[in-house]
Amino acid sequence: MMKEINRMCMEFPAKSCNEGFARSVVAAFAAQIDPRFDELSDLRTAVSEGVTNAIVHAYNGIQGEQNMVKLECVLYKNTIEITITDFGKGIEDVMQAREPLYTTAPEMERSGMGFTIMETFTDDLFVESKPGAGTKVFLRKVFTVNA
């Protein structure tokens, strides 16, 4: 078992102005273990994808205090685990949703690359979803230990 160093949890409304906020929070939180700059950039991008999905898709783009996104981070010596949870419409077929270029929102100029980017920029990606109840996206990033 890895030893947990720190953890945090926050909730914010599904508003697009919180995308940058969420990225910055995760980056600031991860700074405690002094990650490499490029690896931290990858993490910021992956978090941005997960949070943006919750804001764009989960609640059909309806912004408001009743539609919340939850962000949890657990920090280990050289690893961060992030869970992004929404309580929106959920995903019918997660396997299909994770395929590159698959999108249900081409009219909103979505490209269907979000899950592919999350997968490429992290070490583990798990998606759990229940139609009508919401979606949980789990990301794990292992940082190179600084010499």
Binding site: R23, S41, T52, M108, E109, S111, M113, G114, I117
Partner: peptide, 13 residues
């Protein structure tokens, strides 16, 4: 300094 998939969609559009 930063772009995610939203930028892809905007550029392609």
């Amino acid at each position: 300094t930063f772009m995610d998939s939203s930028g892809i969609g905007m550029l392609m559009g």
